[in-house]
């Protein structure tokens, strides 16, 4: 027994599983980055699509993860593996500290505050605070993952590592959606007052969303820094945050297929049309407007009603 969606999912899984064997190195790198960006987009979706927080500074958490790995590896000579946990935990901690004081702000006020955090983050990187971040040029020469004397150096390894990370992210998304936590986020998103009246602490679950989202973005950032063996500020600036924000809304908030589609459209398609350098973003902007007009809830909107089967017996 399989419905259409799971069929599509299976086919996609197979295609993405064998993808590295059929493409050249440039497209392999695009594939890897697509997987990494999908993780970031999902983590943005936890905050934006689920908890409904207008967060437009997500590239900062992505960058924090990337820079944690880069700094630990290049400046302190630690192995990449040792940086994995900090690359997740530091963004989570920063999310907790920064989001705490602003989490009560209304939609648009919070939006500009999160843009602000992202901009401050970039200035910290560019001004090379403590001589650790490498200033505007960033940090080069990041190592590859090594385990038991084996090095996972080829781009194919990078791809499969990103593949696994996306798998873990999807698992988390699914768990979240089927837990008290994910539901609480939706209740807050749909009606804050009703949610509170049912005993949901708005502050707790918004912060929860921020912290989990930051952790996943951090992990993706670590992967990203290893893939390119370098990090620099512009990969994590507000423009990138706007891209993740847009991915979620164009694809479909809180919809797993939607976010994947969004990432594909916003990141892979521009790569395909790279040769039309100049007109590309003009068309892109038009496409964003048109998509929203034609599909205001995104290309593949979320569908609620994911409840256990035993509750569906009377449904006609």
């Amino acid at each position: 027994m399989m419905n259409k969606t799971s069929m599509i999912a299976l086919v996609l899984l197979l295609i993405s599983g064998v993808y590295p064997f059929f493409v050249d190195s440039a497209w392999l790198a695009i594939g890897t980055t697509f997987l990494v960006f999908s993780c970031v987009a999902f983590s943005q979706d936890i905050i934006l699509g689920r908890a409904g927080v207008f967060h437009m500074g997500h590239a900062m958490f992505f960058g924090l993860g990337a820079y944690t790995t880069a700094i630990m590896n290049v400046q302190f000579g630690l192995p990449i593996l040792a940086s994995w946990a900090p690359a997740v935990l530091i963004p989570m901690f920063v999310a907790f500290v920064l989001a705490g004081p602003i989490i009560h702000l209304r939609g648009d006020y919070l939006l500009v505050a999160t843009i602000g955090f992202n901009i401050i983050f970039i200035q910290v990187l560019e001004n090379d605070v403590f001589g650790l971040t490498g200033g505007p040029n960033g940090i080069f020469g990041i190592d590859v993952v090594r385990l038991f004397g084996f090095e996972f150096a080829s781009q194919t390894y990078m791809y499969y590592m990103a593949f696994i990370l996306l798998g873990i992210t999807l698992f988390i998304m699914r768990t979240l959606d089927r837990s008290k936590f994910g539901r609480a986020m939706f209740y807050i998103n749909k009606d804050e007052i009703a949610a509170q009246s049912m005993g949901v602490s708005v502050r707790y679950y918004k912060l929860y969303a921020f912290i989990i989202g930051a952790g996943i973005a951090g992990a993706a950032g670590s992967m990203f820094s290893v893939q390119y063996s370098a990090v620099s500020p512009e990969a994590f600036d507000v423009t990138q945050s706007i891209m993740f924000f847009t991915i979620v809304l164009v694809g479909g908030s809180a919809s797993l297929p939607g976010v994947l589609i969004g990432t594909f459209i916003m990141f892979v398609l521009p790569e395909v049309f790279r040769e039309f350098e100049t007109a590309r973003y003009l068309v892109f902007g038009l496409a964003m407007i048109l998509t929203m007009i034609l599909r205001p809830r995104g290309i593949w909107p979320v569908r609620f009603g994911n409840i256990p089967n035993f509750l569906k017996k009377d449904v006609k």
Binding site: R183, F186, Y187, K190, D191, I193, A194, A195, S197, F304, G305, I307, L311
Partner: peptide, 10 residues
């Protein structure tokens, strides 16, 4: 004040 887009069970 229901969560209008969500299912009755949810």
């Amino acid at each position: 004040r229901l969560f209008a887009e969500m299912s009755v069970a949810e």
